[in-house]
Design a protein around this nucleic acid. Structure first.
Lengths: 138, 138
DNA sequence: TTATATTGCGCAATGA
DNA sequence: CTCATTGCGCAATATA
């Protein structure tokens, strides 16, 4: 997890497709404000290169591509997750329904058992006692 | 599929309320290139306003706030969704387990019934012929 | 070290 | 008009 210092960001503008006016912009090279480079060589590290530099533009373009790709991927993932939620919700309902059914079935069977048990306990022979109340013994 | 029009670069401005020594950058106002404004009023629509304008800076700052807020919200929502997935997955497992249990119980009861039916059909009196099944309550 | 992937941030267009 | 969203580029980091 990273965090970039808030003191080092600068915004950008862009050109919107659909806007008439062409964004004609300036080259603009100095960025940070002319900070000092670390006590090192004057290679090209830590150095604010020209915005016109071929190197720079190339890297920027590549990064922009990468960013786009990354964000697309991110969005896709989010969507997948959302889809997964719906899927799971459906499954959930299905399972709940099944449970309801099974519970009902079980209930019925148990009732039958109980009834039977009562009949036996009451010394009643298996004749016909489906849904009637307890038989009036005596 | 490459994009070539990457000639769209522009300077930026920066104004951190709270950050001392802000890298004051170029104002950059002439964006239209000196072209004429569309045949309309001289309002401020379609017009690139001055980056130094108080109005402008104020609006920018507000928008930046809004953007930050919106993105934060978005991220949170995504996280919530992810959490929801896990929650649903757990629930699903729970339900599946319950179904398994109920199914088993039902199976047992049904077996008992079948056996009993056989006994009756075979003219066997209800005494003791099945296994000593017990059921787990729940 | 270099190249790509992520992430925070500002800008501007657009939606509400 | 104000605020919310969204696409995009930049730069700092994080990974490879």
């Amino acid at each position: 997890m990273n965090h970039s210092p808030s003191t080092t960001s600068e915004g950008m503008s862009d050109a919107r497709p659909g806007s008439p006016a062409a964004p004609q912009l300036v080259p603009l090279n100095p960025v940070g404000g002319g900070k000092a480079v670390p006590p090192s060589k004057s290679s090209k590290k830590g150095q604010r290169m020209d915005r016109s530099s071929e190197e720079y533009r190339l890297r920027r373009e590549r990064n922009n591509m990468a960013v786009k790709k990354s964000r697309l991927k991110s969005k896709q993932k989010a969507q997948d997750t959302l889809q997964r939620v719906n899927q799971l919700k459906e499954e959930n309902e299905r399972l709940e329904a099944k449970i309801k059914l099974l519970t009902k079935e079980l209930s019925v069977l148990k009732d039958l058992f109980l009834e039977h048990a009562h009949n036996l306990a009451d010394n009643v022979h298996p004749e016909a006692s489906t849904s009637g109340q307890e038989n009036a013994g005596q």
